[in-house]
Design a protein around this nucleic acid. Structure first.
Lengths: 176, 176
DNA sequence: ATAAAACGTTCGATTAAAGGAACAATCTGA
DNA sequence: TCAGATTGTTCCTTTAATCGAACGTTTTAT
């Protein structure tokens, strides 16, 4: 298994724990695991059991997938991870679909894409400021936005972890 | 850990494996784990390690979260495969994000969801007729649609395989 | 028909994850 | 100030997850 993923998992757990202002000992006790075990996991050493992860996700009130899945994607920038879900095969309108996770307060400025490229985002949870750098929008869970991505654009997470779908439309949408 | 969850996990892995028409031995070899290990896991006995689960998810090409916690589950219908990508944690607006694949000419009529539930679809590739049964829309790659899902609604693929993102908004969107 | 291969399960041996206690360092309160 | 509690880490022990091999069975091929 990839060492980086273990480290990312540990950091994520530490982050979630500290958000709740819990001590390591406290979370370990709540979850019913030894604090020595939790300590090693947060350090990114070891290889936790499903049971251990399960108990922690329950106490942190985090969907199990989000606890470990964000590590699956490529880390593109400080605290932001992107996973390619699917690439469109349609030449007339090539579409890339991504799932993106952002740590709290993470921020990224993306370069302009090729002309006429549009980008669409849908927020699953959290709060994020996103859009062209000079005119970003504020989105919450359930909100969506479509904007021209052929200019510099911004992603900036709020004070909670953010999950969002991103679709990149590499050609202008065909009029219907 | 709950015994039932372990059993469900095992059945899910068996199902995913058989969908691909792989033998237990084959998946074990691909994933780089002992087949004795995989056998135990599919039987629901034991408590697999993150590393083990990770390797299996990679080979099955399933997002890690859906492997262990498919709350809504990855359900198989006539030629349609749905995988849960992420569940929103925001109580104010719980969002479920799915990736859906449809075989050519597959067709499905979904029951009405709870009142005020809305559904948003984004087509990655292929052509599909989707929306309320009495007024479906025709979408191509790059198109999107949002509609009320508190009534019977339809999915009907064209003559090519379809991939699409589906987000289900379980509460009315908060006015901004 | 019979051998060969592959199937999934079960069995000990090895490895490592989880638990428990001791540790120094830090924070708390009298 | 000083005792007590709590922090997170590290050691050692216990437990069990993983591995490799052997097993009986089924499928395939000659």
């Amino acid at each position: 298994m990839e060492e980086h993923a273990l480290k990312a998992l540990g950091e994520r757990i530490t982050c979630l724990r500290q958000q709740r202002e819990w001590s390591l000992s406290h979370l370990a006790e709540r979850a019913g695991i030894a604090k020595s075990n939790l300590s090693r996991i947060e350090q990114g050493i070891g290889n936790p059991t499903l049971d251990t992860l399960w108990r922690m996700a329950r106490q942190l009130e985090v969907p199990f997938g989000t606890l470990v899945a964000p590590a699956a994607g490529a880390l593109i920038d400080s605290g932001m991870r992107v996973t390619l879900l699917e690439q469109g095969t349609d030449d007339a309108c090539p579409v890339d679909a991504y799932l993106m996770h952002c740590d709290p307060h993470s921020r990224r400025i993306a370069e302009a894409h090729t002309p006429h490229t549009r980008e669409r985002v849908e927020v699953i949870h959290g709060h994020i400021r996103v859009g062209p750098t000079e005119a970003p929008a504020e989105l919450d869970a359930g909100d969506s936005l479509e904007f021209n991505a052929d200019c510099e654009h911004l992603y900036e997470a709020g004070d909670q972890p953010v999950a969002m779908l991103i679709t990149i439309l590499h050609a202008p949408r065909r009029p219907r």
